[in-house]
Design a protein around this nucleic acid. Sequence first.
DNA 1: TTTTATTGTTATGAAACATAGCAATATTGA
DNA 2: TCAATATTGCTATGTTTCATAACAATAAAA
Lengths: 153, 153
Amino acid sequence: MNKPAAPDDRLQDPVAARLGYMLRRASAAMMAGLGAGLADIGLRPVEGTILILVGANPGCIQSEIGRMLGIKRANMVPLIAALAGRGLLEKSPVDGRSLALSLTAAGEALRGQVDAIMDAHEARFERLLAGKDVTLLRDALRLIAEEGEAGLE
Amino acid sequence: MNKPAAPDDRLQDPVAARLGYMLRRASAAMMAGLGAGLADIGLRPVEGTILILVGANPGCIQSEIGRMLGIKRANMVPLIAALAGRGLLEKSPVDGRSLALSLTAAGEALRGQVDAIMDAHEARFERLLAGKDVTLLRDALRLIAEEGEAGLE
DNA sequence: TTTTATTGTTATGAAACATAGCAATATTGA
DNA sequence: TCAATATTGCTATGTTTCATAACAATAAAA
């Protein structure tokens, strides 16, 4: 993602200890790692996630996926179109307006790979946190996410 | 940032428990909160951060700030230009190529406000985590950030 | 002194994200 | 039942963030 490149030790970094910035850096680091892993099978993180979600919810509607991921309807269109265009998922109308999504055989196969990559990625970082209380970390992250999302609504 | 909007409870969400996605959501939540706070004084998070950093390192070079924040040289140009254009910081050549940055009086005043807003923002979330081991959270985030950044280099 | 690296800059493109509006169609509730 | 309202997928469009490539001036290293 970025080049950390040892930004001159002699400089003061007053924001480095702020929770928000630490979260951002950690998030970016993990996202970059996942991106690198998924690039091997020609997917971006969003696309991999959509495959996972559709695989877990066959027949779900395009807008529902978007809501789960916080992606606007308008921005879902090219995402789904690209995946469908690659033969990874199918759209079939349920309504006169809604589209039910489901994975093709190729999509299901790739979903398996995505899962494996995500597992390995997750494991790598959990290993790093060995000895720490990962449950507490998860609880804290959940609290922060909920607070932040509630604080805006 | 996004509209959480209760994305249909009956749907499975296999990625919600993944560390990477929890980090991303938490980070986005805090960033949104900070953005809302800084918007009151007409700054975006990046801009506020730059004011903080330049204030803590008067005379530092534009590229150094960029490296600290993981912002590319090319992308620093309009950022600094905007802040300088608003009379918040000054550029003065030290080299024939480097520009030393420092805050103007107005910039220093605004930096104080940024600091206060960041303090309040930070406090709000630390309050939320009362009872939890925040030190552990920080350690974990630092580890993740370092691992991820090392893993790419 | 020749080579190499750095700095600020321009130009440019890709990706993520947001809004507004639209046609078709469900859903509602009076 | 039927008129008002909401939802869905979509197009068009704009903004913000981030990345690359190239460049001139200049500093630093060989």
